[in-house]
């Protein structure tokens, strides 16, 4: 396959940035999207240029590091896949492909397609945990009963990989899907109950502080989420947030 790539280049957060065009030949349909970028970078380096910087690590769809906005969609045209699991057979010979970074003011560009997502870490630090020490001397694991349906639902919420596709897809750059997935995991489990109210308040407060936008229920995040985290998480978080806010204002 021969393709034309239009790639976002930006040398640091203060640079204005621009699209750069690269023709690429001999792309195999069996390549993953990132392997195609590897091939392009190999060309660029051999020609004495500056390769495209992009985040990636596990290349099996679970670490959440890869983050490309391809032809106007987070992680490209596939559903339920990250950029690293997208294969070139999803494209046709002669296609022009536009590749951009996640765009959100809370995710400043470091270089080219690499952005800073440390805001997500700070939101987790604000309360995305159960306050239990790691002594191992808790009660026996089977002393905490969790109905299977609830456990499975908590697991579904917990599968969020923190990639940020939800933020990149949202016209308001809202992080509600990410935050609500963690809030929901603990809200659904008995272990999460003692801190349920303070957790949601603290995490939402941090989310706002980081400069993420508000949710207007367009559902774009749910469509683009590679792990299928659904909007019911946001509904659950809103409910918990309202309840906790009302209580804390008394």
């Amino acid at each position: 396959m021969n393709l034309t790539l239009k790639v976002w280049r930006q040398n640091g957060p203060d640079d204005k940035g621009h699209m750069e065009t690269h023709p690429i030949e001999g792309v195999s349909p069996d390549m993953s999207f990132l392997e195609m970028i590897d091939m392009l970078n190999d060309q660029i380096i051999r020609a004495g240029g500056d390769p495209i910087a992009f985040d990636h690590d596990c290349r099996e769809g679970i670490c959440g590091m890869c983050s490309m906005f391809i032809n106007g969609e987070a992680h490209g045209p596939g559903r339920g896949v990250t950029t690293c699991q997208l294969h070139m057979r999803s494209f046709k010979d002669g296609d022009t492909i536009a590749i951009e970074p996640w765009r959100a003011s809370a995710f400043p560009v470091i270089k080219d397609l690499t952005v800073d997502r440390s805001a997500f870490d700070r939101i987790i630090q604000a309360g995305g945990y159960v306050s239990v020490n790691t002594s191992g001397n808790t009660i026996d694991a089977n002393a905490i009963l969790v109905p299977k349906v609830q456990a499975d639902e908590a697991f579904s919420s917990a599968t969020c990989i923190g990639c940020g596709a939800c933020v990149a897809s949202c016209k308001n750059a809202s992080a509600m899907l990410f935050v609500s997935a963690k809030v929901s995991q603990f809200a659904l489990l008995p272990q999460g109950q003692p801190e349920r109210e303070s957790r949601v308040l603290r995490m939402v407060e941090q989310m706002d502080k980081e400069g993420f936008g508000n949710c207007t229920n367009t559902g774009a995040c749910e469509v683009e989420c590679p792990k299928g985290i659904d909007l019911s998480n946001i509904a659950r978080m809103n409910r918990d947030f309202l309840k906790s806010s009302a209580k804390s204002e008394n």
Binding site: G136, D140, A141, I144, V146, F155, Q191, G192
Partner: peptide
């Protein structure tokens, strides 16, 4: 025991 106390959603 530790992981369950932390809220790890095992099967």
């Amino acid at each position: 025991d530790q992981c369950v106390a932390q809220g790890v959603p095992f099967a």
